[in-house]
């Protein structure tokens, strides 16, 4: 058990150490209201990270999520500003995200183009198109729509619970549902999966549509937290979630990893910036520390597999 989930456990331990250190050095971090706000701010990215985990497990990658997030956010913002009911805009945002994801999916699964290039292209295209059309202008939303009409604390709790619930459901589904197993199967060996009766292009298509839909959902979750939409939102989101997924132990070569690890990796990386603020450390080293943690996580993994290769005599 420990051996099998070594990576997930070590990230969780690192997270635990960081949180314990904060409890001693900066107890203010644990004030309930600010902590809740902080978690609510991170909830949309967590949702996207869940989708990214699936995509990477199926041996693909999607770097266009940040742009999808921005496109969905701005368009649904415009609809809300035009006084469309939120109950209608909400599913529309998800549909729109799914449609954007389907574009990636068609190109990757249909034409068999490499996902990193396809999503690089769509990332640039959506982002520049948005900039062209909006020229950087904020969308001002009407009053009263914030938190979907709920009280602030209720709204924040709802967002956090929704994100975690999604993660738990996915973690369960990936393990216990046939669909989840298919994602792993396609990621570890598409040809074997095909011979076993799975249709890899369909699974790939599915994961891209799914992450697109999640980007749309995340955009709505972000929209609820403030009365304005910044068209620049979501820039760099792809790197943030890919880093979280990888630190959480999902193999970039597909087929390995689980959502609990992603959860731990995500929290670890998300905590660094507020932790530095709470420890009153200046921001200059922040990027270097982020990079250091990513490297440390993969190096630890690499060293371990090297050692086990040498002693266990596994495949070279």
């Amino acid at each position: 058990m420990i051996k099998r989930n070594f990576r997930e456990l070590s990230v969780a331990v690192a997270l635990g150490l960081l949180l314990a250190f904060l409890a001693v050095a900066a107890p203010a971090f644990y004030q309930p209201q600010p902590l809740l706000s902080l978690l609510a701010r991170e909830a949309p990215a967590l949702v996207v990270a869940c989708g990214m985990a699936l995509v990477i497990i199926s041996r693909q990658i999607d770097i266009s999520v940040g742009s999808q997030f921005a496109v969905c956010g701005v368009s649904s913002g415009l609809l809300v500003a035009a006084h469309w009911p939120v109950a209608l805009v909400f599913p529309l945002a998800i549909l729109m995200g799914a449609a954007l994801g389907a574009v990636n999916g068609l190109l990757v699964a249909g034409l068999r183009l490499p996902s990193i290039v396809v999503t690089l292209a769509t990332m640039v295209t959506w982002r520049e198109g948005l900039r062209w059309l909006r020229q950087g202008q904020f969308v001002n939303l009407p009053d009263g729509g914030q938190w979907f009409g709920m009280a602030q604390t209720t709204g924040q709790i709802t967002l956090v619970v929704a994100a975690v619930l999604l993660l738990v459901l996915l973690a369960w589904g990936m393990k216990n549902l046939a669909v989840g197993r298919q994602v792993y199967a396609v990621g570890s060996d598409a040809e074997a999966a095909r011979l076993a009766g799975i249709r890899p292009p369909l699974v790939t298509m599915g994961t891209f549509v799914f992450i697109g839909a999640l980007a749309g959902l995340a955009a709505m979750m972000n929209l609820a937290q403030s009365p304005q939409v910044d068209p620049k939102s979501g820039m760099g989101l792809e790197l943030k979630v890919i880093a979280a997924v990888v630190v959480g132990g999902v193999a970039i070569s597909g087929g390995r990893g689980n959502l609990w690890g992603v959860f731990a990796g995500f929290l670890l990386l998300a905590c660094i910036s507020p932790a530095l603020t709470h420890l009153h450390i200046q921001a200059y080293w922040e990027k270097a520390i982020q990079g250091g943690i990513i490297l440390l996580a993969v190096v630890a993994d690499g060293l371990r597999s090297r050692r086990s290769n040498r002693t266990g005599g596994g495949a070279p």
Partner: peptide
């Protein structure tokens, strides 16, 4: 970015 500024300010207020 506005979103990031909001997160940063949230952390500042409690720190």
């Amino acid at each position: 970015m506005k979103d990031k500024a909001q997160s940063e300010a949230t952390a500042l207020l409690s720190a």
